[in-house]
Write a protein that binds this DNA or RNA. Structure first.
Length: 480
RNA sequence: GGUCCGGUAGCUCAGUCGGUAGAGCAUUUGACUUUUAAUCAAAGGGUCCUGGGUUCGAGCCCCAGCCGGAUCACCA
């Protein structure tokens, strides 16, 4: 890298400029600067003749014979400054003309309005705060190459203000989620990222080695089992919003590390979660974005509550015919073939049905929809519906044709839980989380639980089509 | 993993039939005291993703690979 850089003509020129500036009494690095305020605040409090100190990165500069204009930006706002030779003197003006795009400067001066009615700072003195040695992307088209944008997010943030805006909104949303949940008496906790057993979901984990104990550990795939142990312990409303790690594919809606919000509420069930998520999403939409309709992946999504709720089997009948569940396995397979849905040899009727749902129905549910009363086989960790042991008391929230959040009336029967773990572990006892099961045996109250993919929620709210646009440093292949 | 598209100057892109590598911005030099994609004049700047092959000659055609994007499949 260093050889590559040293051969760069632009860098050489900037180093020469830096040396000239240092000779002129403008050291290139290492000085702090006390500003009156951030640029957005100076703009908000604009007042002609007010004397202020401001600083930022030069993002545009127009040098003329005896004066110069520049725009500086500090991430909050872009403000114009004007330098005149007769105001700051020949030497200071000559030095100013050695500045390059990307340099950080601090200026002092009075505010005024130009002929073209732009708020501007008339500079009486200036200081170099930090030299930029590499050229920034072009000012007009900016940086559009996706690979460079993801690999060099610094440059992306500098040249694409809308990217900065998305990440500011991301942080606002996460703060407001905490605010909302705290206000309802939920307690935020942090549970381990390093797990002895990767439980709480069915996904491939990342592995690491812990030297001191000479044992392998897993990066967590979900915090679920620890959060339930806290419910057992008497924390009756808990949530955790943090990273999960899954050792799987990488695409437009998947990053190997992603942010999940998991919420558990003792004495509640899937109904309390349903109320919670509707209130939370509409609250976020209104307080942060001031709207209830969002454009996402080519659809207009209206978050106005209450959202549609439909039992899984009704939804199937709606799409596949009222007599669907009277059909034979062969008839179901024939229908799958007709719909170009691939089914495996050994699949039973429920699996074929779900395959058809997955491929042809889920994607059509654009407006927020709760799918309830799923077949028990599909959801191993939930309580059965009171009126039908074949179905479980859960919902899947679908928005824009994508799964956004599942919620369960959590299974709290330790004997049943052990049975399901044993089936899942298929004879490998080391995969069973005995500490969790023991906790359950002391008794877990009836509990509602929910998981929300925060990155996908941010995608929806900011109109982003790719998860990489809402994660600052997404995973990419190493540069060959 | 399959298919399709892309990778050319710091950035954004063009490149005809296979025949000396192009533009705008940026950079350098000069002019310029209200500009704002400043303007005007001139100049410099290239591992055409990498490696092979075909050819008198390859940015362009062929083969293999790397990276990215889209899409499908797989996986939850």
């Amino acid at each position: 890298m260093s050889e590559e850089l040293s051969g760069n003509e632009y860098r050489q020129q900037r180093i020469e400029n830096m040396n000239k500036l240092e000779e002129a009494g403008f050291p290139a690095f290492g000085k702090a600067f006390e500003r009156t305020d951030r640029l957005d605040k100076l703009h908000a409090d604009f007042e002609v003749d007010r004397v202020v100190k401001a600083c930022g990165r030069i993002v545009a500069i127009r040098k003329m014979g005896k004066m110069a204009f520049a725009h500086i930006s500090d991430g909050s706002f872009k403000f114009q400054v004007m330098v005149k030779k007769d105001l700051i003197g020949d030497d200071n003006f000559a030095a100013f003309k050695l500045l390059d795009l990307g340099d950080f400067i601090g200026v002092e001066g009075e505010m005024f309005m130009t002929r073209t009615e732009e708020e501007t700072l008339r500079v009486s003195s200036w200081a170099l705060l930090s030299k930029s040695l590499l050229p920034l992307p072009e000012k007009f088209h900016g940086l559009t190459d996706k690979e460079t944008r993801y690999r060099q997010r610094s440059l992306d943030l500098i040249s694409n203000p809308e990217v900065m805006e998305v990440f500011k909104q991301r942080t606002q949303v996460m703060k407001e989620i905490r605010n909302f949940l705290d206000g309802r008496g939920y307690f935020e906790v942090e549970t381990p990222m390093l797990h002895q057993i990767a439980g709480g979901a069915a996904a491939k984990p990342f592995m690491a080695h812990y030297n001191a104990l000479n044992t392998d550990v897993f990066m967590r795939i979900a915090p679920e089992l620890y959060l339930k142990r806290l419910i057992v312990g008497g924390m009756d409303r808990v949530y955790e919003m943090n990273r999960n790690f899954r050792n799987e594919g990488l695409d437009r809606t998947h990053n190997p590390e992603f942010t999940a919000l998991e919420i558990y509420e003792a004495y509640g069930d899937m109904r309390s979660m349903q109320e919670l998520i509707q209130s939370m999403f509409t609250h976020l939409a209104e307080t942060i974005f001031g709207k209830i309709e969002f454009e996402w992946m080519g659809n207009t999504i209206n978050l106005t509550a209450p959202w549609r709720e439909v039992p899984y089997q009704d939804l199937i009948r709606e799409h596949l015919g009222a007599d669907w569940f009277e059909k034979s396995l062969d008839e179901a397979k024939a229908k799958a073939e007709e719909l170009e849905v691939h089914v495996e040899e050994g699949m039973d009727f429920k699996q074929v049905t779900h395959e058809i749902y997955d491929k042809t129905i889920e994607g059509t549910l654009i407006q927020p929809t709760f799918i309830t009363r799923l077949p028990a086989e599909l959801v191993p960790l939930a309580n059965a519906c009171a009126d039908d042991p074949e179905l479980v008391d859960v919902f899947e929230l679908i928005i824009g044709g994508k799964e956004i959040a599942p919620a369960y009336s959590e299974l709290n029967n330790p004997i049943e839980q052990r049975k399901r773990f044993e089936e899942q572990a298929a004879g490998d006892g080391s995969k069973i989380d005995e500490e969790f099961l023991e906790a359950l045996e002391y008794g877990m109250p009836p509990t509602g639980g929910m998981g929300i993919g925060i990155d996908r929620l941010i995608m929806l709210l900011t109109g982003s089509d790719a998860i990489r646009d809402v994660i600052l440093f997404p995973q990419l292949k190493p540069r060959g």
